[in-house]
Design a protein around this nucleic acid. Structure first.
Lengths: 350, 350
DNA sequence: GGCTCAGATGTGATCGATCACATGAGCGAT
DNA sequence: ATCGCTCATGTGATCGATCACATCTGAGCC
């Protein structure tokens, strides 16, 4: 650390605003102004500074910035069970949207069932002074923990209504569920079962209520509902149960459970879609290659991520929810014994 | 900022070390020592400080810490195409391992094919002064960009040899591929095809070379290899091509492509496993529910994530690679017309 | 010409922690 | 009793940016 540093050792400390200022022949504040593109700056000066930055390979120090401005420019993603397609894609979407706005994202995964784990994850993000949280796997426990801890950080969920009383949400799960259910009803199904996700997940609850709402809207009695855990294995078991109840169609809360249901149907010697129609939710990339190819509901997760970030950062152009889309493939068809009263509908194409 | 602050406004600035010090009746440095559990600290003092922290709901300011210690306690995850199961699970594993050590993780997704996008992602992480990078989807381009940019940040990949010349790697893809191939050979297959992942992915290359190595070790001629893009759709097309080449077994570079191959076999009127055996790679959670249930290679991604972080943070106990595991299910069997020379092996159970 | 005023730039304090160094207390050896 | 040493704690500088405020310059106006 003595003045005449060993020239064998070229790794001197990284350049700072002061170094840039010296090289450019301006003050450190001017450099800072270039960094934050301040309006009143002569173009010539800006260029001088930019040149100096390039020469020194200057990288602004994020920590120093965060400290002095007390803005971390950091968004926290709170997730659980994140090997799954939906959450994983959402994380990527949020990251892209955040980075486009000059923000970074940190993740914290919580074991959704363990309150302590949730607290730890939330606290971790709070300690980083994240400016906002995106909850990617919104279990009730997580939302409860968030409001209870009441660290003054705004948060939003992709799939469900946020704490924000306006009730805006990037993805509308109810509509998607109604789409799926309406499709089955239109085909002529009357005894329809639903494999719901775990009841503590808000998306599961919303999909389930969409299912019920659509049945009711068509004057049909309440459907059979059994609850799985999002996994294909649980889908298998739940489907067995629903089949015992005599359903001709199943709407599964996600594609994995739909896959399990497909498997259960085969194990029961039933043909899909001739004996049993199945609709999934998510449109995972593999859904078209399940056998038969799965009819499912697609959500634009990328767009949802973008909107979540926009809303979190207080941008005004909050568009209405992203509309989900029904993708009709080969796992749904007119039932064998359609209800006697209404058999005018025909099978779906593709 | 005048002394008598408006009591109508209760949101005063968050507590700092100085505040805690005042309440505890010690110096700010002592508080800092508690934070970093310094060895020489009287237990009574520590308790006093901890009590003060609790009272003030003190949260250490990560930015200030990073600035003064010049350690960001942040690990960057560089990923591409992160809706997929492998990368997504790895991210979660790395996050957990990092947080357990008091580190945070930031993600940056790059579009793996676009050099500019890679540079942007790497620079983003470098600007946050991440102390290390974990490359989760190691395409050659990404690694090239990393060495070219030569920001002095250590990095490691989960699946492939890192820049570190020791060649240690958390996951050994070659072994997994040999396991899968050996299984097919042991069943009696002689004409085996491989659906490889994109050649720019190091894991794809390693799996492919493991496949070849195993064939060679058994004195078999080179296998047929066609290259997909990890997707089920490409698996379908590649399988068709391999079938035209007359293979009796296919080793797919991941489970999605294996699913596509399953679909292609059915479309060609072939029975799996009677007419065609298929092995996948990854053991995605759904693999057991494909029809037939997929024989595949399981990797312990969680353990790999842990080791990657440990190695990155320079912990000494670098264990050898995690051994992958062959999961035999129902998609592989003895071929219809086994090679005449060696038919002593029998089918694998479940 | 002198005045005002906005545009462009500079000066020093500040954010909240750690670092480097100084100091006081306690205790055994000489 | 004094030296020397370690343990426990305190003091002030420092990290690299922004913030608040001061200063300078030149154009426009009367």
């Amino acid at each position: 650390m003595t003045a005449p540093s060993n020239r064998e050792e070229p790794k001197r400390r990284a350049a700072s605003v002061v170094d840039v200022a010296r090289v450019a022949g301006v003050s450190h504040q001017t450099v800072s102004r270039v960094l934050n593109d301040h309006p009143s700056l002569r173009e010539a000066t800006r260029q001088k500074v930019l040149a100096a930055m390039r020469e020194l390979d200057y990288r602004p120090n994020a920590a120093a910035r965060a400290l002095s401005s007390s803005r971390s420019r950091m968004i926290g993603i709170l997730s659980t069970s994140s090997g799954e397609y939906g959450p994983a894609s959402s994380v990527a979407a949020v990251e892209a949207a955040a980075r486009a706005r000059g923000y970074s994202v940190t993740i914290a995964n919580a074991d959704g069932l363990d309150p302590r784990s949730i607290d730890e994850a939330v606290n971790h993000l709070a300690n980083l002074s994240a400016e906002g949280l995106v909850v990617v796997a919104p279990q009730i426990q997580v939302l409860l923990a968030l409001s209870k801890l009441s660290i003054g950080i705004p948060f939003i969920t992709l799939q469900a209504a946020s704490a924000d009383p306006t009730g805006e949400r990037p993805l509308d799960q109810v509509v998607g569920a109604r789409l799926a259910t309406a499709h089955l009803i239109a085909l002529g199904h009357r005894r329809i079962g639903h494999i719901a996700g775990p009841s503590e997940w808000l998306d599961a609850a919303q999909r389930q209520s969409g299912f019920q709402a659509e049945l009711t809207a068509h004057g049909l009695p309440d459907g059979l509902i059994v609850t799985g855990d999002w996994s294909a294995a649980s889908g298998y078991d739940c489907a067995k149960e629903l089949l015992a109840g005599g359903v001709t169609a199943i709407f599964a809360g996600n594609d994995q459970m739909a896959l399990g249901a497909l498997s259960a149907a085969m194990a029961s010697g039933l043909d899909v879609p001739l004996d049993l129609s199945i609709v999934g939710f998510d449109d995972v990339p593999e859904a078209a290659f399940y056998r038969p190819a799965l009819t499912t509901v697609r959500q634009d997760l990328a767009e949802a991520g973008r909107r979540a970030v926009a809303q979190l950062l207080g941008e005004s152009d909050v568009a209405p929810s992203v509309r989900p889309q029904l993708i009709v493939r080969a796992s749904t068809a007119v039932p064998h014994n359609p209800a006697p009263d209404d058999a005018s509908e025909t099978s779906a194409g593709k």
